[in-house]
Structures are given as C-alpha cells and as structure tokens.
Design a protein around this nucleic acid. Structure first.
Lengths: 201, 201
DNA sequence: TTGCAATACTAACAAATGTTAGTTAGTGAA
DNA sequence: TTCACTAACTAACATTTGTTAGTATTGCAA
C-alpha cells in the first residue's frame, strides 16, 4: 500500500458503485429501512461481500453526510472570504448550497434526512458542522444589517427559515425537471432577498 | 359494544398514553428505530400488552399522519371558503398550519418526517391528501395573481417553498422557546408575503 | 509459473423484530 | 355469585438484522 493511500485511501470504483446503489435505496426506504442484504442484492452479490469494500453500514451514511457537510462548509467559507457585498454573498451561498444538494440527488436527500441515524459520536460531530454552517449564514445577515442593506430581523429565525427553503429542494428537484439548479438558486435568492432587503427596488 | 363505538371506536385514555409515549420516542429515534418493546418499556408494560390497545405498530403512525392531515385540510378549506382577501387568506392558512404543527410537537414532527414509512396503501392515500393541500395553497396564490395583488410566480415552486418554511417549524419550535405559535405564524406570513406581494408598502 | 492481493462465496452467529396464542388477575353489572 | 370484559402477563414464533470466519476464484506482477 502506498503512503498516499494510507493517508487518504483511494475509493475504488466498486465502492463507488456500492455507495450509489445504497443511496438510491436509502432515499426510497430510509437508512434503517435499507438492509445490507438489500444493498447486496442491488449489487448482485452477497451481503458479506460488501465488507470487502466498506467497513459497515454506517460507513455509507457517515461518508455521505460528512462529505456533503464539508463541501457546503468550504463553499460557504470561500464566499465569506472572497466577496464583500452581502447581497452578492447571500446569492452565492444559495448557489453553493443548491448546486451541492442537486449534484447527486440521492446523496443530497440522504444528507438532509438521514444524518439523525448516525452513531452518537458521528452525530455530534455532524451537528457541530451544521452549527458552524448556520453561523456562516448568520455572518452574512449580520453584515447586511450592519451595512443597512438588510432589515433587522431575528437572525436565528431567519437563518433556519432560509435553510428550510434551501434544503427542501431535495424533496422535489429532478434533473430532468423544469428548472436547472442555477434557475432554482436564482429564484430562491430572489425569494429570500425580498424578505430581507430594506428597499425593494 | 355500542353502535356508536362500532362506527367510531372511542379512544381510551390508555391508548392516548401509548400514542404520547410512541410519538416522543419516534421523534427521537424515528419510526423504524422505535420498537414495540421500546414503547412497551416506556409504558412500563410488555410489548404484547400493547396489542390490547392498538392493532399494530403502523396504527400509531397512520393515526397520527391522517389526523394531522385531516385537520390541516379542513382548516385550509375553511379559510378558502369563508374569506375573500387573498392576503388575509394566506395569513390565516399559515396560522392554521403553524398552530396545528406546534400544538403537539411530537405528533407534528412525526407527521412531517415519518409518513414515508406508511404501508403502500396508506402512503398513497396520504400523498393524495397532501396534493389536495398543496392545491389549496395554489388556489390562494392564483387568486392573488388574478386580483393583481401577488406577483406572477411559478406557483408550484412557490407553494413548495412556502410549505418548506412552514414545515421546518417542527425542527426547532419549542413550547418554552422565545416565540409563540402566533408570533411564528406572523413572522412567516410577513416573510412569505414580502416575496409575493406586488407593492411592498 | 508462482504467488499475492482483491474480491467473491457459503455458513453461521447472536440479537432484535412485529406479532400471536393462551392465560390470568381484577372490576363492575346482572 | 356468576358473567363478561378489560388489560395485563408469559412464552413462543418465524423473520430479519449487521456482521464475522473461513474458503474459493480470479487476474496481475514477479
């Protein structure tokens, strides 16, 4: 085994297939409703064989949740680092969120809905990341208020409501549907800003 | 057994306790993560004894989901029947929704999240009710547009986003928290209307 | 060709699942 | 007292669960 593989083990193509099959099923049946034997049968192999590629059922869930969470976090951090205009920031943060959630619809759905079933340890790590993410949105709102661009609102409330609208996308987005992720992001941004901006020009 | 009980069997106090215990657990652990033995232990009885009061595990879920759905639907129908002003209608529809979801926080949560685990038959009945509910909101938006009060927006998109914000309430509402259901409904209405109204006065 | 790593298999495990059968103790009405 | 009813119990059931152990097959590198 190469040193690089020790540090960041290469994900085999086979494992990627298992992840795909698993996430599709978990979206339909939920994490707890999807058994290792279900996944195996989707892979046309035996349940025991899965363990040559993954260390256990929670692996699938944890890897999905943390990969998504990390991407969302770094995307939002970039936005907060690079740009200055709060309206622009918000718009880009929304784009970031929608793009990541819609890129792999099954992963997006599982991320939004099934993180609860992580083990205690993983779950608290996950919740910490989510809190940090909410804080990132809060920063944008606060900046907008300080600069007099946004109304003064209950920020906690506003952030939760904004994320509600964003996450709900996984419920109904379809790649072949009527709207592209960009269009969705634009509409959502428009909707959110109309509730935040001081003067609706 | 009385005839009236045959038609609409009286829900015993014991059964109500089982429902309470079950819903609290299902909120924490999910429907599939809550076993009959878990519920029984919460009731300080044996799992088999539960069957003296309920006909099975799905009973708990189905009764909760349909009771909530019916209340939401009739509430919305009343609003659409009685009032005329679309702004007023929307405001009252939001109040109705928030009030019902927050009245019993566990039931509200289970209703929003766990209906997926209904049996095929119950689930399709449930989805039909949800579609009807969405149609009710659609009607309000359309009326607002026809009367020139609301902007012309993608209605399907708008309804889903509105319901996203409304349902997200179950995620964070706490009876002892900072906001009453009325205050929440007002804030949400304000937020939604700011995205819909033509002239922001 | 030999040998090794990857990947599949069969068999089995202990635990947990929803539910049923049959029984028993207590309560109020006849 | 007798009777029916309610609501609890014990015991057991057939499945399903995630996972492990041990073994066979394959394909590539030496």
């Amino acid at each position: 085994m190469l040193v690089s593989e020790k540090i960041s083990p290469k994900t085999s193509a086979r494992k990627a297939q298992i992840m795909d099959v698993s996430l599709e099923m978990m979206r339909r049946l939920g994490y707890q409703g999807t058994s290792m034997r279900d996944i195996a049968s989707g892979m046309k192999m035996e349940a025991a064989s899965l363990y040559n590629h993954i260390s256990g059922k929670e692996d699938i869930l944890a890897e999905t949740c943390f990969r998504m969470a990390e991407r969302l976090l770094t995307g939002l951090a970039d936005v907060n680092d690079i740009y200055f205009n709060p309206v622009e920031k918000l718009s880009l943060a929304v784009k970031n969120h929608v793009n990541i959630l819609t890129e792999n619809t099954h992963a997006g759905w599982v991320f939004v809905h099934e993180w609860r079933h992580l083990s205690d340890e993983n779950r608290s790590r996950f919740v910490a990341m989510r809190d940090a993410y909410e804080k990132g949105f809060n920063t944008i709102l606060k900046q907008g208020e300080d600069e007099g661009v946004f109304q003064d609102v209950n920020n906690k409330f506003a952030v939760l409501t904004i994320l509600a609208s964003l996450n709900w996308v996984v419920e109904w987005y379809k790649p072949q549907g009527g709207m592209t992720p960009e269009q969705i992001a634009d509409k959502l941004t428009e909707f959110i800003l109309s509730g935040l901006k001081k003067d609706n020009n």
